[in-house]
């Protein structure tokens, strides 16, 4: 058993500081285990959000040495050669307390996406779809709503455009609906206006932090951008629309 020093953010949005805790570390422990050990042995009021502890629910997101991470899937041994391990709340969201942030904006963004709307059934018992047809959407639906991509996205993190830009997680969600072979809804206007898709300049930071390894930029955002471009900026289609309108 080795001793490690953790510096953990304690406080609220307005004021707070890093506090130092020495923790006994066993083989295989993850960052969330260390937080729990601090909680049970030293600071029962240390706030952290968590549920499944198996990388499936996306609750325990925080920043470890400044990097957005799921704390339940990040092993302490990954930081063997670093001294103190610093754990801070996600920077892109207001802090409620300690490591817990206010992520309610994300739920508002999700609600704004036009809902799934299926085409009429193919048969009495439902629809027929081939496995290869559903796989693109299935990749998007792996999202566990950890919001790490929202946290790392500079549009949100550095420029706080939470009102103007729904962020990578909800572009993934939109892509998940739109790539569903039986979906019949048109979300192009949503993407351009409320979604703020234009704010994304495809730096791929979101793809790098996704614990589900969703290729957010290439497989979700770029195809959605192409749809918006086709609709609003394709000169030929614009001309057709102009003529039709008249």
């Amino acid at each position: 058993m080795a001793k490690r020093i953790f510096e953990v953010y304690r406080g609220h949005e307005q004021s707070g500081q890093l506090e130092s805790y020495t923790v006994d570390v066993d083989e295989g422990m993850v960052i969330l285990d260390a937080i729990h050990r601090i909680q049970t042995e030293q600071a029962p009021d240390l706030a952290v959000r968590w549920n499944c502890k198996a990388g499936k629910c996306g609750s325990c997101s925080a920043e470890v040495n400044g990097q957005p991470k799921l704390t339940c899937m990040t092993r302490i041994s990954d930081y063997e050669n670093e001294g103190t391990i610093t754990i801070t709340p996600m920077k892109a969201f207001p802090v409620i307390k300690d490591l817990v942030t206010d992520v309610s904006q994300n739920y508002a963004n999700n609600k704004a996406i036009p809902r799934f709307k299926p085409r009429p059934k193919d048969a009495e018992d439902g629809w027929r779809m081939k496995q290869h047809e559903v796989e693109k959407a299935q990749e998007m639906r792996k999202c566990i709503e950890c919001f790490l991509c929202q946290d790392v996205c500079h549009v949100l993190r550095s420029h706080s455009k939470h009102e103007e830009f729904v962020g990578p997680a909800f572009l993934v969600r939109t892509a998940g609906y739109s790539m569903n072979p039986i979906d019949n809804e048109d979300r192009t206007e949503f993407l351009k206006e409320r979604g703020g898709l234009g704010y994304c300049n495809i730096t791929k930071c979101c793809t790098e932090v996704c614990p589900e390894h969703i290729t957010i930029t290439d497989n979700a955002i770029i195809p959605l951008k192409e749809r918006v471009v086709d609709r609003y900026y394709d000169p030929l289609k614009s001309l057709v629309r102009l003529i039709r309108r008249k």
């Binding site: 799934f116 299926p118 059934k121 018992d125 439902g126 629809w127 027929r128 779809m129 081939k130 496995q131 047809e133 559903v134 959407a137 299935q138 639906r141 609906y177 569903n180 979906d183």
Partner: peptide, 20 residues
């Protein structure tokens, strides 16, 4: 289960395109 599909769930498929 069929209702979940109608609400957007995408289950794995059989060769003939039904829910596996």
């Amino acid at each position: 289960v069929r209702e979940l599909e109608a609400w957007g769930a995408l289950f794995d498929r059989t060769e003939d395109g039904r829910m596996n």
